[in-house]
Amino acid sequence: MATKKLLAKLGRFLDADRASQRKEIDSIRKVLKKLKHKERDLREKLPKAPAGEERDEIAAKLEVIYAQRRKGLDRVKELRGVDKPEKGEGKAEDQIKDS
């Protein structure tokens, strides 16, 4: 039993880097989610905004959100060290491309 525990501890120690990566990915996901909400709000506002200054402002904000989400996705990919996107991020990326 003691050996098993020790082995588990050793496993966690060797996996420490992976755990912190997991933590960072989770945090980025949380921020991406906030951005997604913000984007949805802006998208709803965009057609209602009168053409001109206000509309341009919203469009510029959307442009920035896309760039930020793109950066987030790139960082997630980098952390995973894989080219193939995972479930959640793949969806987010598709959404950016579709939008």
Binding site: K23, E24, D26, S27, I28, K30, V31, L32, L35, E63, V64, A67, Q68, R69, K71, G72, R75
Partner: peptide
Amino acid sequence: TLAEQAAEGALALDASDIERM
């Protein structure tokens, strides 16, 4: 939290991003 702040930092546009855009 610190991790969330770091995540926001990673996503934020830096000076070169802003200049390019």
